[in-house]
């Protein structure tokens, strides 16, 4: 992955932290203006960070979704497991991401993988909570009807409970998507690049800040819409009822 190749980003960063204010003036005549022209000219500079950011969002979401859904199904079966797990991931979620990244690089090293570990940990509480709530909110009568038809508990879980929980599950996934994009903004502290690094490279140059921030917002919106599209495709019965 490209992130692995990034050498001590922060070490370089500290030297030109407020970076290049001189440079900004060169690139953008007329003081520190917004400069749409500059953004258009330099747009290609943002494509690589954008791609890093996409990977930093999609991969943790995918891993986190599989992990949290599995754990939630376990917790649904053995309800005693839910409170301790939820308490654990809630504490993880509370730790500020910058601190999390910087503490983690002392354990697992700097790079893309470390950022993915932290970001996956952050998705857990959002997805787990919603999957479990969704499973628990399936009406008792529906489950009993399935049992009465002779379905096994595995068939009930995959054929009845999970499908009925999908709207709640996807609501959690959607929140996780946009929050992961936001937290990945700090992933460069773990040496994984992303759009946050572009912002930090020159945080007082308006053109730079606007270009990178807008890309982050668009990415968050696009991911949420993608999740929504998958949800619609998977739950055709919902459309039939609500529209």
């Amino acid at each position: 992955m490209s992130g692995l190749a990034v050498t001590p980003v922060l070490a370089q960063l500290s030297d030109d932290f407020f970076g290049d204010r001189q440079g900004a003036a060169d690139r953008c005549p007329g003081n520190n203006e917004l400069c749409p022209g500059w953004i258009v000219d330099n747009f290609t500079d943002y494509l690589n960070p954008l791609w890093e950011h996409v990977l930093l969002s999609v991969i943790p979401l995918a891993i986190g979704f599989v992990l949290a859904t599995g754990l939630a199904m376990l917790a649904h079966r053995y309800p005693k497991l839910a409170p301790p797990f939820l308490a654990f991931v809630s504490i993880l979620f509370t730790i500020p991401s910058i601190a999390f990244y910087l503490i983690l690089i002392n354990v697992t090293g700097r790079g893309f993988a470390t950022a993915v570990v932290a970001l996956t940990a952050y998705t857990q509480v959002l997805i787990f909570r919603n999957v479990l709530t969704g499973l628990r909110e399936v009406p008792q009568g529906t489950v009993e009807a399935a049992q009465g038809m002779g379905m096994s508990s595995r068939q009930i879980l995959f054929g009845v409970e999970l499908p009925m929980a999908l709207p709640t599950i996807f609501a959690g996934l959607r929140i996780a998507a946009s929050s992961t994009v936001g937290i990945a903004g700090f992933a460069f502290f773990a040496g994984a690049g992303g759009l946050g690094q572009s912002i930090f490279a020159d945080p007082r140059f308006r053109g730079n800040v606007v270009a990178a921030s807008v890309l982050m917002i668009l990415l968050a919106a696009a991911l949420e819409l993608a999740v929504l599209a998958v949800q619609r495709a998977l739950t055709p019965w919902q459309r039939a009822v609500s529209r």
Binding site: R206, V210, I217, A221
Partner: peptide
């Protein structure tokens, strides 16, 4: 939810 915290802070600083 969509507006990243980092972008928001830096936006205020820049503008």
């Amino acid at each position: 939810r969509a507006v990243p915290a980092l972008g928001l802070i830096v936006f205020f600083i820049a503008f």
